[in-house]
């Protein structure tokens, strides 16, 4: 779940984003507290807090004093938009690079993608 390649708080933020995208935490519902997250993932609470605050800063979560953190209205749409922006760099570019290495032409690549999407 967590790996060594990137800072943990980034990975934690991404994981919560994924959970929001797949509907685990619908909008206007609470996400786990810092300490719950820390205990569940067995990580330092400060790191867990940093991950949550990253999402607060980007407007995905908001704080309700004394209660906890909640998924903001419109968070799903906002996440999808930003994920779409980075989609090309994160998924398409490596795909094209690998295809070129294997001698797959762009046309064949498109055909492969079409086939995969239809199956």
């Amino acid at each position: 779940m967590l790996d060594d390649s990137r800072p943990l708080f980034v990975q934690i933020a991404e994981q919560i984003e994924n959970d929001i995208l797949d509907g685990t935490y619908p909008e206007e519902t609470a996400v786990p507290s810092t300490n719950e997250l820390a205990a569940f993932l067995r990580i330092n609470p400060a790191t867990a807090g940093k991950g949550l605050n990253r999402l607060v800063d980007s407007g995905i979560l908001y704080k309700r004093r004394g209660i906890g953190m909640f998924v903001a209205t419109g968070a799903t749409r906002q996440l999808k938009e930003s994920r779409q922006t980075s989609f090309a760099a994160e998924y398409v570019a490596p795909l094209v690079h690998e295809a070129a290495k294997l001698g797959i032409s762009t046309k064949d690549l498109i055909a492969l993608i079409t086939k995969e999407a239809q199956s």
Partner: peptide, 8 residues
């Protein structure tokens, strides 16, 4: 150093 800085 902060552990997070060492990661990666």
């Amino acid at each position: 150093s902060d552990t997070e800085e060492l990661r990666g």
